[in-house]
């Protein structure tokens, strides 16, 4: 492949290219004029054009992961994340790069009018390059979204794990909602952590609010009981509804090593007894 003429062409017509490109972006269907101002877009376009020029000047038209393209990628990374936060859609964000094609090709057509072979070659390599950069923008956009989702998931998990102190030396974990593997392990970790912090010898895991218990969840429960025992604390599982008791037996889940109680009240009673307390009613004493 002969040496690309793109740098020269871009450098010569940079101002015109930039103006056309900005115009192009504003004219495009779905341009979010509500989200971005003219001068900001003009500045972003100018900056990227400079970095794009630096990239093509390196002569590397294939590998955008090469060092020469690092500043351009860095810039696109910032733009992409920024637009994600501002509420642009992925395609609206990628449009920033793709819309450069039209003004750039128009310029190529003018400058290389006499040599159709060269024109085609330059257009091909420019297309390939801009496609790669455009895809990069989409990728960054996607990963910015994934970061947000991940953070929210983690926050949600933390919110859904209240370990409450019932009495001196007794903590309880009222589980509510469906338990999947990830949630169960987070919940169990925070229970064990609270056992250490409060120095509680007894932990009650109440599953009244859990609609179903499958083999995996049961295993997690049993593992938690085993881990608590290694730390020196006992677990009581309470709130096992009749249907869940049936499923557990059908699934051959062995709970014989664990104290189970039908209700949280029953569990608390046992826990108080074990920690040396007695609950009496005044009227009964008299």
């Amino acid at each position: 492949m002969s040496k690309t003429q793109l740098p020269g062409i871009i450098k010569k017509a940079k101002d015109k290219l930039q103006a056309n490109w900005v115009q192009q972006q504003f004219d495009a269907v779905g341009m979010r004029r509500d989200l971005i101002k003219t001068d900001e877009l003009t500045k972003q376009s100018g900056d990227f054009l400079n970095q794009f020029l630096a990239g093509v000047e390196s002569g590397n038209m294939v590998d955008i992961k090469s060092p020469a393209w690092a500043p351009a990628l860095e810039f696109l990374n910032t733009i992409s994340r920024q637009r994600e936060r501002m509420g642009f859609s992925p395609s609206e964000t990628a449009q920033f790069v793709f819309s450069l094609k039209e003004p750039l090709f128009a310029q190529l057509r003018t400058d290389l009018k006499g040599s159709p072979d060269e024109l085609i070659e330059e257009m091909n390599s420019a297309t390939a390059l801009l496609d790669k950069l455009g895809l990069y923008v989409t990728e960054v956009f996607q990963s910015a979204r994934e970061d947000v989702i991940k953070r929210q998931q983690e926050e949600m998990l933390e919110l859904s794990t209240p370990v409450v102190k019932m009495w001196d030396g007794i903590v309880a974990l009222p589980l509510i909602g469906t338990l999947d593997s990830a949630r169960t392990s987070v919940v169990m970790e925070s229970l064990l952590q609270r056992i250490v912090e409060t120095g509680s010898e007894i932990a009650i895991i109440d599953i009244t609010g859990v609609p179903t218990v499958d083999t995996l969840v049961a295993q997690h429960l049993l593992k938690t009981v085993a881990a608590a025992r290694l730390m020196g604390a006992d677990c009581i599982i309470s709130g096992i509804r009749p249907q869940i008791a049936q499923t557990m037996v059908h699934l051959a889940i062995d709970l014989s090593a664990v104290t189970t109680k039908a209700s949280l009240a029953e569990a608390l009673k046992v826990a108080l007894q074990r920690t040396g307390h007695r609950v009496v009613r005044d009227v009964d004493v008299k």
């Binding site: 250490v196 120095g199 593992k223 881990a227 290694l230 020196g232």
Partner: peptide
């Protein structure tokens, strides 16, 4: 807790060993 969780996952329950907090 992290050590206890890991031991259980490893398959070791230290049967016969008494524990305290």
């Amino acid at each position: 807790p992290a050590v206890a969780i890991t031991l259980v996952e490893l398959g070791l329950s230290l049967v016969g060993v008494s524990t305290a907090l």
